[in-house]
């Protein structure tokens, strides 16, 4: 790698140390009280902790409130189409496997318009972190029902109450062949949020994290009771799980769950009276599409020689 410009630093022998302001870009334009702020803070903390090179890191998002996420980071970003963050991220990772890829999606993005991609990205199990910022509502377009809107909740498209029970992103992901990492956390428990995202980043495969979020504009009150009353939360705990010690004294409801146990993960992921947070499933030995299809490096001379061989088959 050479620099075309003498005044530029050469980053080859990288001794740079990255601080928070090396990742922060601009003032987020989310509403005050929006859960997206907490997720951004946790992600920035991860970037500093892992010292990810900003130029080697790509955040891909769809469309929706949360998909503005890449604009607030000084990494590379791709703010693409509604529902289509995962295909774009797949292209980035397939072609440039050395890049660190993060995907930021909302509940409409991932679980509705992009649902096909979600299932297949889970099965591809390429190394990337997929964050589902789930506030159970369409915010950017102003309060339409999302796949995770609670039954009976009134929205602008279903003013007499959402007729169907919500889709469960955890059981859906856990039901997909080749699933390798599924966790759930909540934006109002920063220590748990950070620990979960960090575990996701360290996972060698497709790490799916559902983040429960409040929307102060349209689902105000949805998690009020849960936020106020830690007794409504159950933590999945295990030596191999995500258990930040800082919250020991607050969240005392615990279920011991071995994250290698898929059957148990599926049972625990069903909706219940309490909200369960933690690592549901992790398997580091699943087939990884990005590794399986990685081609050899070929020089241009080799390419031309190979193509001439190809043409020989068709020569007259």
């Amino acid at each position: 790698m050479t620099s075309h410009c003498a005044i530029l630093p050469i980053f080859d022998d990288d001794e740079r140390e990255f601080a928070l302001n090396d990742y922060e870009a601009g003032m987020p334009r989310w509403c005050p009280g929006c859960g997206d702020h907490s997720v951004l803070t946790a992600v920035e903390k991860l970037l500093v902790a892992e010292q990810l090179k900003p130029e080697q890191t790509v955040f891909v998002s769809g469309i929706g409130c949360s998909s503005r996420f890449p604009h607030y980071l000084k990494t590379y970003g791709f703010h693409g189409l509604h529902g289509r963050a995962l295909p774009v991220a797949t292209g980035v990772k397939l072609h440039r496997p050395e890049l660190e890829v993060f995907v930021v999606m909302g509940d409409g993005d991932c679980c509705s318009i992009g649902a096909a991609h979600w299932i297949h990205a889970t099965r591809y199990n390429m190394k990337m972190v997929a964050l589902l910022l789930d506030n159970s509502i369409y915010g950017l377009t102003k309060k339409q029902t999302s796949p995770t809107t609670p039954q009976g909740f009134k929205t602008n498209t279903q003013p007499f109450g959402t007729p169907l029970p919500p889709l469960n992103p955890l059981t859906t992901t856990l039901g997909t062949t080749n699933v390798s990492f599924v966790a759930q956390t909540a934006e109002w428990i920063p220590a748990h949020l950070y620990a979960t995202i960090r575990a996701a980043y360290r996972h060698p495969g497709f790490a799916f994290v559902r983040i429960l979020q409040r929307c102060p504009m349209y689902t105000e009150g949805l998690y009020n009771e849960t936020v106020k009353n830690p007794g409504m939360v159950e933590l999945l705990v295990h030596d191999d799980g995500v258990v930040p010690p800082e919250i020991d004294k607050i969240y005392t409801n615990r279920i011991t769950h071995d994250p290698s146990d898929l059957d148990s993960a599926r049972r625990l992921a069903e909706y219940s009276d309490r909200i369960r947070l933690g690592l549901f499933y992790r398997n580091e030995n699943r087939a990884r599409y990005d590794l399986l299809v990685r081609p050899p490096k070929v020089t241009s001379s080799e390419r031309i020689a190979l193509l001439n061989e190809e043409l020989d088959h068709y020569a007259i």
Partner: peptide, 24 residues
């Protein structure tokens, strides 16, 4: 030839994967 042929889950994803690769 150092190439990847990716059979995507649908036509939309195929375009998205190509654009993601082109971007990168």
């Amino acid at each position: 030839f150092g190439g990847i042929l990716h059979q995507a889950e649908d036509e939309i994803a195929a375009a998205g994967v190509a654009i993601g690769a082109s971007y990168a």
